[in-house]
Amino acid sequence: MTRLLSSALALSKRLFNLIFSFFYSIGEIVDFFLDCVKYFITEKFYFNIFLKQFIKIGFNSLPVVGLTSIFTGMVLALQSYTGFSRFSAESAIPNVVVLSITRELAPVLAGLMVAGRSGAAIAAEIGTMKVTEQIDALKTLSTNPFNYLIIPRILAGIISLPILVIVGDIIGVLGGYLICVNLLNFNPTVYLQNTYNFVQFIDVFSGLVKASVFGFLITFMGCYHGFNAKGGAQGVGQSTTYSVVSSSILILLMNYIITSFFFRL
């Protein structure tokens, strides 16, 4: 009886610790975010570094995003043909392709790809700087690491992701077009006209809002986990893992939240 009680007590203690550490880390993340905002407003902005990061995160991700988009557009066309031909609705394929790509697939896939590519790189770079005392060195050289390292990366993420997604939108639609015209004997002009007449501002816009939010999540999580890396190479590895996993999950979660927000509009 007492053993049962004590094991129940131990269990509830563990549960309490778990909940506590969960809220504690949320508090830390919020704190980190507020610091970013504070230093962004009050201190120096390193435009050169922002530009460098913009090229690293945005421009260098173009091939990856382009490839994912074109294949997604192609698959989308094929799969919807399979379905729609069963009730002779093939003509709706351009509409389905452009809608799915702009609203959903281009932003989410670009987000996940960039999370794996740039988010991990950011966490690894900043984490290494942390454990090798380079961040401490920055502080003693009158350079605020938030302004020098973190804010430029986050801004680059927020701005470059929507641009990547616009490119992804175009390439994705092109993928669907290629399949429909070359394989399924669609009329090229009709396909493009259909797409153009059907797509609405809100479709593209909601995708770009998502992209910006994802860009923030990726770079913010990369910076946060890198900045809190501890204990050598292993700690850096762990911080990259955390950054990719947490930003991927947050991307999917925020994707749902933003979708339902635009759904109500």
């Binding site: 700087m129 005392e133 380079q134 060195a137 920055l138």
Partner: peptide, 20 residues
């Protein structure tokens, strides 16, 4: 604190040069 730290010139044990 930033101001305070800038009074010091520090050679770190592992040098801590910015490797980028």
């Amino acid at each position: 604190k930033m101001n305070y730290m800038s009074k010091f010139g520090i050679l770190f044990q592992n040098s801590a040069l910015l490797d980028s």
